[in-house]
Amino acid sequence: MNTPKSETRAIPVRGAQNLVAGLSLIGLALFAAWAASDLPLGRLGSMGPGMVPYAIIGLIVIFAIGLVANGVMKDGEGVSLPDFSAVIAIAAVGFAALVAGTALRVAGVQQIWGYPPTVFTFCLFYLAVMVWLAVQAVKRPTWLDRSGLRGPIFVIGGLLAFALTVRSVGLVLAGPLLAVISGAASSETKLKELLIFAVAITLVCIAMFKYALKLPMPVLIIPGVIYL
């Protein structure tokens, strides 16, 4: 693939990419098998809901073992850790958020702006950190570029910021937030240009989606004051 060969910290295996691919698939298959463990298999003549998923999982495991064997025995593409650091980091953050969310639901707090207060503060904090990181990254190359985190973290971060704000504040905030945060994912971005562009694209989208296509989406909400 497009992995730069020179910088890769290759794991000393002949075809690391196939090995990792095979192992991840086995992991995926195990997870699916666990998720489907409550489903009855039935018989061939009258299949239960579990039969087809289990058959597919079985086939995936067979091919995954083949990939692992291929990775151990044949020379192939390498794997570089920065390629996956972002996925691992984001998955970890997501998992932490899930655990925190479950804990808060148990605590039974009231809502601010449709969110529990702690989640609301978390969102504000998250958005502030994302915007700060984005501004930092736009000015000069940082550790983000070297770790391979830059692309995924800003694109995914931008998407999450959009999801968090589109229903609570509206497109006026969600659009520019997404454009600015995700815009920082490219190392060629210039801050001023990006800011102007973010506002422009949002205005175009509001005109097109809200007024031309008449989609029911909030443009600006300030509770008790305005609802556009």
Binding site: L178, A179, F197
Partner: peptide, 9 residues
């Protein structure tokens, strides 16, 4: 650099 934020939005 300008195209992809537009695509995302």
């Amino acid at each position: 650099r300008l195209m992809f934020p537009a695509i995302l939005v």
